[in-house]
Computed example of a mutant assay.
Amino acid sequence: MKTDYFPKEISGTIYDATPIKGGVLSIDIHSNSKDDGISIRNSDMIFKNIKNGTYLKKIPNTNKCFIIKGDSIMYFNCYVFSKEDSAKIGKIKNWNLNLTNHWILKK
C-alpha cells in the first residue's frame, strides 16, 4: 500500500480537477516533460482551493503536497487515512499540522 501512494513525485500546473466518489480528487497536470495525473484524498477545504492554473507539487516518498497561487502557498497532506489504513502503511512523512491547510505568503 505504501508503494502505491508515496513513491511518485509530480509537479506542474493543474489543467483539470475532477471530484470522484469517496472523497477523492483526480488531478491532471501539465509538467515540464509530459502530462501526468494524481489522485488526492483530503478534506473539502483543499478541494475548494485546487483550481485549474494552480501549481501543485507532491514531494516523492512522502505524504506531502503543496499548491502555489500567486504569492501564496498552501501545504497539505495528500492523503488522509483511516486508523486501519495508517496501521497497514506504517510511518509516513507528513507536514507539521500547524503549517497545513491554510494559505501563507511564500518566502
Rank of each mutant, 00 (worst) to 15 (best):
I68V: 15
K21T: 13
C65N: 13
K8D: 04
S11A: 04
F66G: 02
A17M: 06
G23H: 01
K64R: 04
N96M: 09
D35V: 10
F47H: 04
I104P: 03
P19L: 11
K48Q: 06
K34Q: 15
I92N: 01
K91M: 15
D28Q: 05
T62C: 04
L56F: 11
F66D: 02
D28I: 00
D44F: 00
K107S: 09
N52W: 06
I38Y: 07
W103I: 00
A87E: 09
I40K: 08
Y75E: 06
I46T: 04
K48R: 03
P7C: 00
K57T: 08
K93N: 03
V24S: 05
K8E: 05
D4S: 08
K51F: 11
L99V: 14
K21E: 12
M45G: 11
G12I: 12
A87G: 04
F66P: 02
K21V: 13
G53Q: 08
D4R: 10
D85S: 09
M74R: 02
F76L: 05
A87F: 11
K57N: 07
K57G: 03
G23Q: 01
S39A: 13
T3H: 05
D4G: 04
Y75S: 02
S86T: 12
P19Q: 12
K83T: 10
N94V: 11
V80C: 07
D71V: 11
K69N: 12
L105Q: 14
G53I: 14
N63R: 06
K83F: 07
N32P: 12
I104D: 07
H30A: 11
G23R: 01
N52A: 10
D71Y: 09
D44P: 01
M45S: 14
I38G: 06
I67T: 14
Y55S: 10
C65V: 13
